[in-house]
């Protein structure tokens, strides 16, 4: 006795809304994800302010006793943290399509790679 395989569920048609210049896509995933609330944005800005204050603190002589290598590490970590916070939260890369993340990361990595090679070729690193 042959069994009929269950029919696949019919795909739901994405609702389409009319905009001033034609239909608007409501199914697009970047239109569905919720973004942070205003309160969360303010929290991120406060974190960025604190990170900037920490960066500026390294300017003072007492911190310079740590040595240049330690200062470089501290400043790079703080800089990267600020960069990531702005890109992820304010530019919504944390919530948007992964394609945008890949495009931007490709630009950053390419720029870093090309110019690290260039600076190495010119012996910028004090060796």
């Amino acid at each position: 006795m042959s069994q009929t395989p269950p029919a696949p569920p019919a795909e739901e048609a994405a609702p389409t809304l009319e905009g001033p210049d034609g239909p608007l896509s409501a199914h697009a995933h970047d239109a569905v994800h919720e973004h942070p609330s205003d309160r969360q944005y303010v929290k991120i800005a406060l974190i960025l302010g604190v990170l900037t204050a920490l960066e500026v603190f390294t300017y003072f002589e007492s911190v310079h006793n740590l040595g240049d290598a330690a200062l470089y590490v501290i400043l790079i970590v703080l800089m990267v943290l600020k960069f990531v916070y702005v890109v992820a939260w304010f530019m919504h890369l944390k919530f948007d399509s992964v394609l945008f993340k890949r495009i931007f990361t490709a630009g950053v990595v390419l720029a870093l790679g090309v110019y690290l090679i260039m600076l190495t070729a010119f012996r910028i690193w004090g060796v």
Partner: peptide, 27 residues
């Protein structure tokens, strides 16, 4: 409750072409 991304006309990728272009420009 936060906000959703702005709506845009339908595209093959499901993503706004303007946004793709802007990210390429920023890259």
């Amino acid at each position: 409750a936060g906000h959703a991304s702005a709506a845009h006309p339908p595209t093959n990728t499901g993503m706004s072409h303007n946004k793709v272009a802007m990210w390429l420009f920023l890259g």
